[in-house]
Design a binder for these strands. Structure first.
Ligand code: FES
Ligand code: FES
Lengths: 143, 143
DNA sequence: TTTATTAAGGATAAATTTGTCCGATTTATC
DNA sequence: GATAAATCGGACAAATTTATCCTTAATAAA
């Protein structure tokens, strides 16, 4: 579904939303430990999210990462798009170069409906609600 | 979403359903040409589908492949499961080792609903209806 | 029996994704 | 200014997926 990089990216963003409340900077080391991801690989992903402008980084001692906007203003679609591109949102289910309703693949109409629903879910799910579940202890970033 | 192998596998099965009506054997060469896939790689996938029992192969001159059951009795879920395994049907959206509603990841309840819909779509879509669209010329296997 | 055609399968190669290492840079504190 | 803590970024390595090559085996037709 999502690439490993994207999975890590989403988890990292959720964790930062939860741990970085009040503007506290969250370090790469802490993030990787909490989401159980390889440190250096996670660094690459956070760098990318910073370049994309949905994450802010601060170098130096006591530096770290913080969300570039309020947690309830950042949705999953932004993160997925930044890391995996938009194939998730408009790619053909059978891998044709582009999805096109005028020359559709055999599964197009069944697939497009469902892809639409996924896009909708990603767009309407924000980091605030996801972080809330974490804080309440009803959801988890690893197991 | 699906692996390249799975995309080729689905397209191949749809093509065989359409071109193999009346029990005619369809050759690897023809299949690869019609779905525009690399011949040898496609061979591996068809071998796998044969081992899985949803495709029948016949060696020798005028040999080829045919569906192991009537086209309307083979659904997409079987093909996907044979090639990509069942992670599509029960894998965690954030890559946790297993999806578990008792210790869910933050996106579990949003994701599981949608995964359910995908599984449903795959289970209720059979090769007969997909091949019909092809034959009518309203859908295409490449572009 | 020979030949042509076709799938099976093992070995290998290329491409992509995932992951590691390390030096450079930035910043707070001593 | 020196030191320690932290991100940045380039090069590299490992793992996985995708793709190719080639030999063997099976089968039909000449
Ligand atoms: S053309 Fe394949 S999903 Fe639209
Ligand atoms: S635990 Fe992640 S989707 Fe169910």
């Amino acid at each position: 579904m999502f690439s490993k990089a994207c999975e890590y990216g989403i988890k990292a963003m959720i964790y930062i939303a939860q741990a970085g409340e009040g503007g506290r900077l969250v370090s790469l080391k802490e993030i990787a430990a909490e989401i159980q991801s390889p440190v250096a690989f996670t660094a690459k992903i956070l760098q990318l999210l910073s370049r994309e402008g949905i994450l802010l980084s601060t170098k130096g001692a006591f530096g770290g990462f913080q969300l570039a906007a309020a947690a309830d203003k950042i949705n999953l679609a932004e993160i997925v798009k930044a890391i995996d591109g938009d194939r998730v949102f408009n790619g053909c289910g059978l891998g044709l170069k582009e999805c096109n309703a005028l020359k559709p693949c055999p599964v197009h109409f069944k697939f497009a409906a469902f892809r639409e629903q996924l896009a909708d879910m990603l767009q309407t799910t924000n980091l605030h609600e996801l972080a809330a579940g974490l804080k309440k202890g009803v959801s988890f970033l690893y197991r």
